[in-house]
Simulated assay, not measured.
Amino acid sequence: MGEQRSKAVKVAEFLADHDGVISTDQARHLGMSHDEVYGKSIAGLWVRHAHSTFLSAEHRMTDIALLRIAALAHGGVIDRVSAASLHGLLVDLPTPVTLSVARSSHGARCAVDTTVRRRTFPAEDLATVRDVRTTALPLTVLAAAADLDDGIAIMDRALQARRVTLTQLRAALDRNCGAYGMAKARKLLASAEDLSESELERKFVRFLHRHKITGWRQQVWFGGRRLDFVWPELQIAVEMHGWAFHHDHTRWERDQQTTNMLSKAGWLPLIFTWERLEFAPDEVLRELTEAIDLRQRVA
């Protein structure tokens, strides 16, 4: 009786520590027999979500439970946006769950909606978070940044919070250079490493020349402040913004003051970021040409 009680306590503690998720192998390791596991399932006390993975009926399905079930069912590594959620970089868990399995792995049935890729990771790029196998934080940041539409934001936040460094991101990229999504991640990282204000302005100059946009001047002083680009006859000013982690709060306050000063003087202030210039140049072109056309009609 004491042995049975001890086993029951161990199982209950395991379920409490693992968000109600347990596999057949884990239950057997805790001393349960095959018949006992089967009995829990038949009685509805453990709800089967994969061939050998269950959620206790006493626990609700949470984001971390979904990740645990997917990882156990597939024998895989949580990666990309799901890993970002597991590491606390995202508030909500996006669906489907993203994970990778070994190339030799056989398919697994799982009630959790998943996107599975076949790949293995260098040991340096693996971690365990809350007892779930996942990609380490630097690779997670790179992969999630490549997957998300606003991927630059997740990399920016991780750098600002000093959860990762540029050196760590570069090392993870070099180890996984041929993997899915790393081409976009390489662009984002290169900009974070090398993008000075002068380089961003040179990029915008090339953009203006490529689209044959004229009438502008660069680095013009107005009201005691240096403006990146102006169309003086049309009273249009363009400020270029790079990555947030390169700037401090004082710089942000100064930018707001410049925008307000220009507006009060009758100028049209526009702000373009490196991200939009790199990944949405058509939007930048449309907004700029619409502003120029509008001012030309008014003039």
Rank of each mutant, 00 (worst) to 15 (best):
A65M: 10
F121L: 15
R130A: 14
V11T: 00
L139F: 13
A291L: 11
H34I: 04
I236K: 10
L208Y: 08
A144K: 11
V164A: 10
T273A: 02
A153F: 05
Q218S: 03
L189Q: 03
G223T: 06
T258D: 01
E283G: 12
D147W: 04
E239T: 09
T53W: 10
V220T: 05
H18I: 00
T128L: 11
L189E: 04
W221S: 13
A244M: 05
E13F: 01
I236P: 06
V238K: 04
L126T: 09
H18C: 01
N176K: 01
V141C: 07
C110H: 06
V284W: 12
H59I: 08
A16Y: 00
A143S: 07
A171E: 14
N176Y: 01
A57K: 06
T128D: 12
L195R: 08
L285C: 07
D125H: 04
M240E: 07
L99F: 12
S191H: 03
A127T: 12
K10D: 03
F229K: 04
I152K: 06
I22P: 00
A179R: 07
K264G: 00
R226A: 14
R28W: 04
R254H: 05
W221G: 09
R202H: 09
R28S: 06
S100W: 07
E275Y: 07
I152T: 15
R186N: 05
G39V: 01
R206F: 10
T134E: 13
